[in-house]
């Protein structure tokens, strides 16, 4: 059960991405790469548990990721 294989199964599913600095995103996983850079669509940006904005698509740089929950 490799992490990126599990991540691959979450493609086109809703995921919660928890980032460093009390940030996060909730959206549909559209893609990723070996750095765990992510593409999310229909994503909500979360700061201190509040939704701060909604975007059609967004790239998240992998080094900020704490966890991704499908």
């Amino acid at each position: 059960m490799k992490p990126l294989a599990v991540l691959n199964k979450a493609i086109n599913q809703q995921v919660i991405v928890e980032l460093k600095g009390k940030r996060g995103y909730r959206g549909i996983l559209d893609g990723y790469d070996p750095h765990m850079n992510l593409v999310l669509k229909n994503a909500e940006e979360i700061r201190d548990s509040q939704v701060t904005r909604k975007v059609d698509s967004i790239i998240v740089r992998g080094d900020n990721v704490i966890y991704i929950s499908p």
Partner: peptide, 9 residues
């Protein structure tokens, strides 16, 4: 699937 760098491209 859309890879991050292809969306950037």
């Amino acid at each position: 699937m859309v890879m991050p760098l292809s969306l950037l491209e």
